[in-house]
Computed example of a mutant assay.
Amino acid sequence: MRTTTEAAGAPAEQPPLRFDTKIAVLLRDDLEPWQRLNVTAFLVSGLGTAVPEVIGAPYEDADGTAYLPMFRQPVLVFEGGKETVALAHGRALSRSLATAVFTSDLFGTGNDRDNRAAVRAVHGDALDLVGIAVHGPRNAVDKVLKGARMHP
């Protein structure tokens, strides 16, 4: 027997998909709302190029209008103090996870070249991090985020 949605051509309900990897953003908790949004957007933009398997198929509406593909899994956003972000950064690097960084210096630059130069000018342990994004096995990402809390 088919359900109503199956009869209408929609696929049957399937159990939720559980991913063995996690995409997470950790933001410093003292950022302004516009900074949180800006930093999050910049941080996740690098993951699709470095880890192409996180990108799903393109979208299309019923009219046939094509839309860009997006991540195939949720992006979880966390927050923590300056020390929490610094510790998470170190943990991510020690686990060789795909990691993106955003430093406070990037708020003062206006282009990609200057952004890269600002990060390159500072040793990793001295970066004034306002956010990081990480992708990797769920358990490893959970360990990286120890001490952080879900963003409200």
Rank of each mutant, 00 (worst) to 15 (best):
M1L: 11
T3I: 11
E6N: 06
A7E: 14
G9K: 07
G9C: 08
A10E: 11
Q14I: 14
Q14N: 10
L17R: 15
R18F: 14
F19N: 07
F19H: 14
T21I: 08
T21E: 07
K22N: 05
K22C: 05
L26I: 02
R28T: 02
D30W: 05
D30A: 08
L31G: 09
P33Y: 07
W34T: 06
L37K: 03
N38W: 02
T40L: 05
A41W: 03
F42K: 04
G46K: 00
G46N: 02
G48N: 08
T49C: 09
T49P: 00
A50K: 15
A50E: 12
P52R: 08
E53P: 03
V54N: 02
I55C: 07
I55F: 07
G56W: 03
G56I: 04
Y59N: 10
Y59D: 04
D61R: 12
D63Q: 12
G64P: 04
A66G: 11
P69S: 06
F71W: 03
Q73F: 04
L76A: 05
L76D: 00
F78V: 01
E79P: 02
G80I: 01
E83H: 14
A88D: 02
G90E: 11
G90P: 04
A92S: 13
A92R: 01
L93E: 09
S94Q: 14
R95W: 11
L97M: 09
L97Q: 01
L97Y: 01
A98G: 05
T99E: 00
F102Q: 01
F102Y: 15
T103V: 14
F107D: 03
T109R: 09
N111C: 13
R113Q: 14
D114W: 04
R116N: 05
R116W: 07
R116G: 05
R116S: 10
A117W: 06
R120C: 08
A121P: 04
A121E: 10
G124Y: 09
D125A: 15
D125V: 15
D125K: 15
L127P: 00
L129I: 10
L129F: 07
V130A: 03
A133W: 00
A133E: 01
V134E: 03
H135V: 15
G136E: 01
G136P: 01
P137K: 07
N139Q: 15
N139S: 14
A140F: 08
V141M: 05
V141F: 04
D142Y: 09
V144Y: 02
K146W: 06
K146V: 13
A148C: 03
A148M: 02
M150R: 15
P152G: 15
